[in-house]
Amino acid sequence: MEEEVILTIKDLRKNYGSKAVLNGVSLQVKRGEVIGYIGPNGAGKSTTVKIMLGIEDDYSGEIKIFGHDISDGNIEYKRKIGYVPEIAEVYDNLTGHEYLTFVGELYGLEFDLADYKAKSLMELFGVGEVYHSRIASYSKGMRQKLLIISSLLHNPELLFFDEPINGLDANSVMIFKEIMTQLAAQGKTIFYSSHIMDVVEKISSRIILLHDGKIAADGTFEELKQQNMEGSLEQIFNQLTGFSEHKELGARFVSIVGEM
């Protein structure tokens, strides 16, 4: 049980036209790991996740989830996956109630159970009062909470969170971090991508850094620190992505601001 492999990716490659987004990504994820998946904008993080969920196809390489190759068209593996997309796309002319029960039923939940769970989770997240309002009227944080709830309704084994704390306030972020910790303790596997380095540093049991469509670093935070001799994850990130010009760029930016 301890060492059960949930997810294997072998030499994953993907092109958009002539532009290569993923250049041979390989990794293995074990049950109960919380993986912080980080990298600069356009490194291919979201693409990796989308491929695993079947939103994007046309890739080369092999992906096995729960020991099963996802390219054979069998979609049963998706029943045990929860997903929070990076861009909050929802059918926003539905109400929260309508959308969440719909999603629950797509995962095979009974309507009543989905309704009960959705309502309770919305209330716990402090957005119970908008459960019957149209999503179009939600604030950014409310939408994000709705998405997080919609990804958890069916009690999935494997979670993909793409920028899940986008737009959440500090208190909600704390609740969310606690939820992640508890889920991981139950043996759920979480694949987590974010730009907020402090959060990633604190909650991840393992960090994978993607740069130019390749894995640039892979290990616990401690391991990364030893390899790179830098203090914080932010500094490691800068070093590994070869970025050191922030001072100079900032100075130039400000000097142009000052021009009249």
């Binding site: 979609i75 997903y83 796309e89 929802v90 797509l106």
Partner: peptide, 14 residues
């Protein structure tokens, strides 16, 4: 509708 792709494709619906 491209939302279909993002909302329905990750779900276990063939």
């Amino acid at each position: 509708d491209i939302r279909d792709r993002n909302i329905l494709f990750p779900k276990p619906v063939d």
